[in-house]
Simulated assay, not measured.
Amino acid sequence: MRDMALILVTGASSGLGRDTADALAGDGHDVVVHVRNTARLADAGDTARWKGVVTGDLSDPDEIRDVARQAGEFGRFDTVIHNAGVMRSPEAVTVNVVAPYLLTALMDKPDRLIYLSSSMHRTGSTDLRRLGEGTASYDDTKLWVTTLALAVAHRWQGTSSHAVDPGWVPTRMGGPGAPDDLAAGHRTQTWLATHPEATPPTGGYWYHQQTQTPHPAAQDEDFQGRLLHALENHTDAVL
């Protein structure tokens, strides 16, 4: 990876996504931010620091595809950070799982992929019928996106892929009473995005720059394959 990396951060208008994008831009990297619409940047400060902005509602599959098209105009990214997420159903399955899958499938392979997980993935279900039915819980979606990250790591040589639990931090999603350190919430993502010395170099589940053991299903090659097959059928896009 070159010293100045080209990096896409989804869901970057506020919260952890904004903190991640700010930190990377502050380190001199070319950062492209994704926001749902340009109005989301109205209070986001000086956008001159960004290499560019892509817009689209990640709860809408057609707009996800357009985000991939817009991002493709910047060329191949060194790193893509799939940060965007919501807690509410039924949007959660599309924003938290389908969008990262589709963007991964449709964009040129980057050097590095980082998918935002959660400790709540440990209580997620492996019942993939919930994907098509739109009944998946937040916990389900975080198990599935963690599985996606590790499936990509297993299948794509030359691209590192990691899942990151940022902790329960006091963002708009996490709420003001969240107990984890907000500043620590983005450090693992920014470090993995730009530093080659991470161990393992791919397929890690990270919390505060340390690896942990994820839900067993996330590392199960059979479940990884079933999830990818379900997502292919759901989106008509092949990874």
Results as ranks from 00 to 15, higher is better:
R112W: 00
K109G: 03
T10Q: 05
V35M: 04
S89F: 04
V35G: 03
D43Y: 04
V80G: 01
G26I: 04
E91K: 15
G17D: 01
R49F: 07
A23G: 03
V86Y: 05
A21H: 02
S13D: 15
L8K: 10
H34R: 10
A23T: 09
H29A: 07
L102I: 10
T38W: 02
S117C: 03
L58H: 13
T47F: 00
V97N: 05
N83Y: 02
T20C: 06
A99R: 13
D111F: 06
V32K: 11
A25I: 05
R36Q: 12
L58E: 12
D60S: 12
F74H: 15
N96T: 12
L8H: 10
S117P: 03
V54G: 00
A39D: 15
G56V: 11
R88C: 02
T20A: 08
S119R: 12
K109T: 14
R36G: 09
L103A: 08
G15Q: 10
S117V: 01
M107P: 01
Y101S: 13
G72E: 09
M107W: 00
V35D: 00
L24T: 03
G11N: 13
G11S: 14
V31C: 10
R49Q: 14
R36P: 07
W50A: 12
L116T: 10
V33Q: 00
F77H: 04
H82A: 07
A84P: 05
V80Y: 01
E63D: 13
H82V: 03
V33E: 00
T104R: 07
R18H: 04
V9G: 01
T104Q: 07
F74G: 11
R69F: 01
D62W: 01
I64G: 13
M87R: 12
T47Q: 09
R40N: 15
L116N: 01
M107R: 02
L106P: 00
T47R: 02
A21D: 02
T79R: 02
S89Q: 14
A39V: 05
V54L: 02
A23D: 14
G75F: 11
D19M: 14
V35T: 04
N83S: 14
A12P: 02
G72F: 09
Y115L: 11
V97C: 08
K51F: 06
M87Y: 12
D46C: 08
L102G: 00
P61G: 08
P61L: 09
V86M: 07
V32I: 15
D62L: 09
G75L: 11
E73P: 07
V33I: 12
V31L: 10
R65Y: 02
E91A: 15
V53N: 06
E91D: 15
V80R: 01
S118G: 03
I64E: 13
D57A: 10
P61F: 06
A48N: 13
S119Y: 04
A92E: 08
H82F: 13
D27V: 03
S89N: 09
A12S: 05
V80Q: 01
R49Y: 07
V35S: 04
L103S: 08
V98T: 11
Q70R: 12
G28S: 05
D19L: 15
G75S: 11
A71D: 05
R112S: 06
H34M: 08
I114T: 07
N37D: 15
L102V: 13
M120Y: 01
V35R: 01
D60W: 01
A99Y: 11
V95H: 13
R88N: 11
D62M: 06
V35F: 02
